[in-house]
Lab assay of single mutants.
Amino acid sequence: TETYKYDDKREAEKAAEEFRRRGITVTVEERNGTWVLESK
């Protein structure tokens, strides 16, 4: 599991889209005002 942090929800979702395009499952969730993207 890799974790990436973003200040902006849009950025996180854009990154998530890129991962999914490569066939990687990711989750995006907000933690304490930071958007956390996790690849499984």
Rank of each mutant, 00 (worst) to 15 (best):
T1H: 12
T1G: 13
T1D: 09
E2T: 14
E2C: 13
E2D: 10
E2Y: 11
T3F: 12
T3N: 09
Y4E: 04
K5Y: 15
K5L: 14
K5P: 04
K5G: 07
K5M: 13
K5F: 15
Y6M: 02
Y6V: 01
Y6F: 14
D7R: 13
D8V: 05
D8G: 05
D8N: 14
D8I: 05
D8L: 06
D8T: 15
K9A: 07
K9Q: 10
R10E: 15
R10I: 12
R10K: 11
R10C: 09
E11A: 12
E11F: 04
A12P: 00
A12V: 03
A12M: 04
A12H: 00
A12N: 00
E13Q: 08
E13V: 07
K14W: 07
K14N: 08
K14T: 08
A15G: 02
A15C: 06
A15S: 04
A16R: 04
E17T: 05
E17A: 09
E17Y: 05
E17P: 00
E18Q: 08
E18I: 07
F19M: 12
F19K: 03
F19W: 09
R20T: 06
R20F: 09
R20Y: 07
R20M: 08
R20V: 06
R20W: 08
R21T: 05
R21M: 09
R21Q: 10
R21V: 07
R21W: 05
R22A: 11
R22H: 09
R22K: 12
R22V: 09
R22Q: 12
R22Y: 07
G23Y: 02
G23H: 03
G23I: 00
G23D: 03
G23P: 01
G23A: 02
I24G: 05
I24F: 15
I24R: 06
I24V: 10
I24E: 06
T25F: 14
T25G: 06
T25Q: 14
T25A: 13
T27L: 08
T27W: 11
T27Q: 08
T27D: 04
V28G: 00
V28Y: 03
V28P: 02
V28L: 13
V28T: 03
V28M: 10
V28C: 06
E29W: 11
E29V: 15
E29Q: 11
E29M: 11
E30C: 09
E30M: 09
E30L: 14
E30H: 11
E30V: 06
E30G: 03
R31A: 05
R31Y: 10
N32H: 07
N32V: 03
N32A: 06
G33M: 03
G33H: 03
G33T: 02
T34C: 08
T34A: 12
T34Q: 15
T34F: 15
W35A: 01
W35Y: 08
W35L: 01
W35T: 01
W35Q: 00
W35P: 00
W35I: 02
V36H: 08
V36N: 03
L37M: 04
L37S: 01
L37A: 02
L37R: 00
L37E: 00
E38P: 01
E38S: 12
E38N: 10
E38G: 04
S39L: 15
S39E: 10
S39C: 14
S39D: 07
S39M: 15
K40C: 07
K40M: 12
K40T: 13
K40Q: 13
